[in-house]
């Protein structure tokens, strides 16, 4: 069953298109990697999927469990956040903000959800540690835990491994892969790392060409877009 369908989507700012004719379809349990050069509109596409950015044209059709507010999101990290005074527990719990509704305070169920998310990502023992004192990989794990508090159905990750060292990168990819395989969470991930995309994803969207390339991984491998020996895009 399709979770998200994009038809002839054009995105841009102030009437000027950044990308045109984006077409793709995501089913529950898919692992989609979005690759492409800087400025090709990957982050903008993510924001459109989240309902934070209205398309210039075309349409985004959302299936069940993907309405605005019920998608887990791991944004491209900003510098401001890195020295923010907050504990891992506080950050993770803030993932429940969408389910607060008309309430003012988190319920026991919310706290339990945050605890489970931290457990799933192996950061329970960091719960009282300041976010700013963590390594890059631990910070990303925390933000992933926060995204999981929002939903387990579909998560959007914008360059989750940028700035991580190779070990932490491999670790992060493995975690996301397990999430996709074991919990059947749909994953949509922006990355520059084509070799990792082919290893883990089952679908690939290559932004920047016209038309944008959207195929399964097997077809992508055989196509001219795929660099001879994998590696960085």
């Amino acid at each position: 069953m399709s979770q998200i369908i994009c038809r002839d989507l054009s995105l841009g700012y102030n009437g000027e298109a950044v990308c045109k004719n984006v077409n793709f379809e995501i089913e529950a349990g898919d692992y989609l990697c979005i690759v492409g050069e800087n400025g090709s509109g990957k982050s903008t596409l993510m924001k459109a999927l989240l309902g934070l950015h209205s398309p210039l044209g075309g349409e985004i059709i959302k299936g069940d469990g993907t309405s605005t507010g019920s998608i887990g999101y791991l944004p491209q990290q900003s510098e401001l956040q890195r020295d923010f005074p907050a504990t891992v527990g506080e950050v993770t719990l803030s993932g429940c903000i969408g389910s607060l509704g008309k309430k003012f305070f988190y319920s026991k169920a919310d706290r339990l959800r945050a605890h489970d998310a931290m457990k799933q990502l192996g950061i329970c023992d960091l719960a009282d540690r300041p976010y700013s004192s963590l390594s890059g990989g631990q910070q990303q794990r925390t933000l992933l835990a926060r995204a999981l508090c929002a939903t387990k159905k579909i998560i959007l990750l914008d360059e989750p491994v940028s700035g991580l060292d190779p070990a932490a990168t491999a670790d992060m990819y493995e975690t996301i892969y397990l999430l996709n395989k074991k919990s059947h969470t749909t994953v949509i991930m922006v990355t520059h790392d084509i070799s990792a995309s082919i290893r883990y994803a089952n679908k690939i969207l290559h932004m920047g060409g016209s038309p944008h390339f959207f195929r399964s991984v097997e077809e992508y491998r055989a196509s001219s877009l795929f660099p001879a020996e994998g590696g960085e895009a």
Partner: peptide, 22 residues
């Protein structure tokens, strides 16, 4: 006090909070 949780979320990460429907 009443908006403490929302204020925290918006202060820490505006993008995420918007995505969560705030």
């Amino acid at each position: 006090v009443l908006f403490y949780n929302r204020i925290f979320s918006v202060t820490f990460d505006e993008g995420f909070s918007r995505a969560a429907g705030l």
